[in-house]
Design a protein around this nucleic acid. Structure first.
Lengths: 140, 140
DNA sequence: TTCCATGCAAACACTTTGCACCGTG
DNA sequence: CACGGTGCAAAGTGTTTGCATGGAA
């Protein structure tokens, strides 16, 4: 798996460095994480990585389509790896829970946007804010 | 209209100041604007408003439900007034065009999220990134 | 041996906060 | 005349960049 990544990186003229691999692995491990959190995760293995390296790599990895980011809060961008099929996220404002949802649930919606507005949505980047059942109950 | 707002503001223990009114009006005038752009708009009328006042007021106005914000780019939050019916936005990554869409187009999608995940989406905050017809053509 | 990648520190963009003064209600 | 609002400047966050050095291909 990492080897696939390594190959893909090299074939784009980039190089595979230890830092890059650590960061990639951290994205994979954490699921959804901010640059800062990724740095912390990486530091568990090796303290020899700088925050700016994290940023630079996330940028590169995103260009190559190996990771994606979304916005959890208004402040924090969070990165996740692009492993399986495309999916999008539901985020509960109450508990910050993240629910990953497969593409089936949006297909119809996407089709409608395309038909009505000639607009092709980027499903992988889609983040829907709202409230989950637990938090609605709690609020009552 | 501004009077309704003024009333609503006062009844929450807040006060109606000239700055607050100018900012509210600017949000209304500009449609979708960043704090900085709002300041610029306000300055057309009166230079006596500070950026931090803009921030503080947007916070208050959002609490009161008079304005909302969304995220156009990854960096800039943009505010718009809550005037008519609820709507959400499509944003083209290519040209940054913003398309406002009424709630009909999402109803079905929203219903599905609620049925399948017990999740109630916040339609007014929804922002869908993607690409518009023009930009897709250009890319080809 | 060539460039891409890295560390470090400084620069940046955006937002928040402390404090003294001002003005609405 | 009490208390919320404002301006100003300084301090935070989070992210980006310039430069010299290091290392993958």
């Amino acid at each position: 798996m990492s080897d696939d990544f390594a190959e893909r990186i090299r074939s784009s003229g980039k190089r595979m460095t230890p830092q890059r691999e650590l960061i990639l692995r951290a994205v994979d491990t954490l699921g959804h994480a901010t640059p800062e959190q990724l740095l912390a995760e990486v530091h568990k293995q090796s303290s020899a990585v700088n925050l700016s390296t994290v940023y630079r790599n996330l940028e590169v990895l995103e260009e190559l389509g190996l990771v994606r980011h979304m916005h959890l809060g208004d402040r924090a961008p969070t990165y996740h790896s692009v492993g399986g099929p495309e999916h999008f996220h539901l985020i509960c404002r109450g508990c910050e829970k993240v629910i990953s949802v497969g593409p089936e649930a949006v297909e119809q919606f996407a089709a409608r946007l395309q038909a009505d507005f000639d607009f092709v949505p980027d499903i992988g980047h889609l983040t829907v804010f709202g409230s989950c059942a637990d938090c609605r109950d709690a609020a009552t």
